[in-house]
């Protein structure tokens, strides 16, 4: 199923998620993380999108995966944070 969300991160920027997920397995097939936030290095967002594939659409699973990718790729978000990104993704779930 394809779904999208728009979420204004508190004290941050506008996050737009485009999500394709497997309703039976409750996992992410494809994800696009878009918006007017900042992330350093920028290209790491594509790594994040790839790494989130097959992740279970559950708050803890998503948050742990995001934390791991941030740590491994030394990502710094400005105008976006782990909680905001997790919330934006889960808002896509119908």
């Amino acid at each position: 199923m394809q779904s999208r969300s728009i979420y204004k991160v508190p004290n941050g920027k506008l996050l737009k998620i485009l999500l394709e997920y497997d309703t039976k397995k409750n996992t992410i097939n494809e994800i696009k993380i878009m918006g007017d936030f900042f992330a350093y290095p920028e290209e790491a967002i594509e790594v994040m999108e790839k790494e989130l594939q097959h992740t279970t659409l559950d708050e803890n699973c998503i948050m742990e995966k995001i934390k791991l990718v941030i740590k491994e790729n030394n990502i710094e978000f400005i105008g976006l944070n782990i909680e905001g990104l997790t919330k934006g993704i889960l808002m896509c779930k119908k």
Binding site: K16, L18, K32, I33, M34, G35, D36, F37, E42
Partner: peptide
């Protein structure tokens, strides 16, 4: 547009 934005959106 910013790096993370969708052009057509």
């Amino acid at each position: 547009i910013g790096y993370f934005q969708s052009l057509k959106e």
